[in-house]
Design a protein around this nucleic acid. Structure first.
Length: 219
DNA sequence: GCGACAG
DNA sequence: ATCTTGTCGC
């Protein structure tokens, strides 16, 4: 897909903060998505002691979840891992990988938070705004927020709260397994996000999209 | 000031 | 994220 560069990639935290402040106002948390035919998953990883960032994209058909296309990209790492600024470390390589695929996904599931972020601008929001494509954040662990115990059955969830607002959902995708943290990325509401995450997790805790991207990036 | 802290 | 084997439990 064609990628339009909205801003240069920052090398300092100060520059990153400025970009977050500028782009966060563009995030849309309402449903503005087309019928989903293709769902993509993106994943970032590191090699050579972290000096190289590796990203993988897997595009699956929906709702069959069969792999349709894949791509991998590597580029030198230019930003450190700082909680709250993960996107500046991983998105550059993710865009490189997305540029290689022919199918434009109708929805992208990201490995990390959406608006369940201190400034409501997690990696899923950042990627969604840069591409203007609907995105959802699906994280394996908590960044911010509090929540009540989630019943043990698949499909059960509890709102993730922060400063008086619901910023996401703690969702059980498999009975008896740790829940995942779901939040709107861009152009997708929370209830719709929960629905898609459940439809992308027919068998395992994590969505098939991210599992594919993970597998491709590792091998 | 003291912890918490996506990947 | 990454370094890493076997092991507990359904």
């Amino acid at each position: 897909m064609k990628i339009y560069q909205r801003h240069p990639w920052p090398l300092t935290l100060e520059e990153a903060i400025a970009i977050q402040e500028q782009l966060r106002i563009e995030v849309i948390t309402e449903d503005r998505l087309e019928p989903v035919q293709y769902v993509a998953g993106v994943d970032g990883g590191f090699e050579e002691s972290g000096t190289i960032t590796r990203a993988a994209v897997a595009v699956l058909g929906f709702p069959d979840l069969q792999l349709q296309e894949q791509a991998i990209a590597r580029r030198s790492t230019t930003f450190p891992y700082v909680p709250g600024y993960l996107s500046f470390r991983e998105i550059p390589a993710v865009l490189d990988a997305l540029e290689k695929i022919n199918i434009t996904p109708d929805l992208i599931l990201c490995d990390g938070q959406g608006i369940a972020h201190p400034r409501r601008f997690g990696i899923a929001c950042h990627l969604g705004v840069l591409l203007d494509v609907p995105t959802i954040g699906v994280a394996k662990s908590l960044l911010i927020g509090k929540y009540a115990d989630v019943p043990d059955e698949r499909g059960a969830w509890q709102p993730l709260l922060h400063r008086g607002e619901t910023i996401g959902a703690v969702l059980r995708t498999r009975t008896g397994v740790k829940p995942v943290y779901v939040s709107s990325g861009h152009r997708v509401s929370l209830t719709t996000a929960i629905d898609y995450v459940l439809r992308c997790t027919p068998k395992y805790r994590l969505p098939e999209t991210t599992r594919w991207a993970d597998k491709l990036a590792s091998s």
